[in-house]
Amino acid sequence: MTFQEIKQRLRRKSVGIAGCGGLGSNCAVALARVGVGRLVIVDFDAVTVSNLNRQYFFLDQIGMKKVEALRENIRRIDPAIGVEVADVKLTPDLLPGLFASCDVVVEAFDRADQKEMLIETMLKDFPEKPLVVGLGVAGWGRTDLVHFRKSGNLYICGDEVSEISVELPPLAPRVGMVANMQANVVVEILLSSEVAR
């Protein structure tokens, strides 16, 4: 498939991204660059200076809402991408309204309890919808530990062991690896579903 063909297929697709931190902002940018037509991005937080070690924001965006800053950055890459923003803390009751129309959902939260809430809600309410999660991104090196596995419609990217701590912070290279793995899995799902139709 040429890039033009890929872009044409992805243009009709819609991806929901829960969380616009290290995983979500980098994953969204990768999906925008390849031409996914519609992105629904969800986050309640604002950009801080400590985010800049891994998240796709800039110094002059500090204090901005992450969803607004990310929409601006995606527009600078490709203004044709439709970016829908939700400046909310995601809860199970909000999930259908935000993601029912998405072909794939990306779990890009920071905290384990939020990841649990999203995965449980998706498995209960949208068992047929592909959900691509990021688990285990902290630290640096240990590149060979990062992996991908699939369990039904749940797609897992990460090392599944490294939890963040003061001594094991999340950093751009390793978080970016997993964010881009998630984007890569999303593209694979979107292009294969297209072929099957």
């Binding site: 969380g19 931190g21 290290g22 995983l23 979500g24 890009a108 939260f109 920071d110 905290r111 384990a112 309890d113 990841k115 649990e116 995965i119 990021g134 688990l135 285990g136 991104v137 902290a138 369990s151 749940l154 897992i156 990460g158 599944e160 062991v161 490294s162 939890e163 963040i164 999340p170 978080v175």
Partner: peptide
Amino acid sequence: VQVIHLISGG
């Protein structure tokens, strides 16, 4: 059986 650990970081 699938057991998935939820790990903070993102």
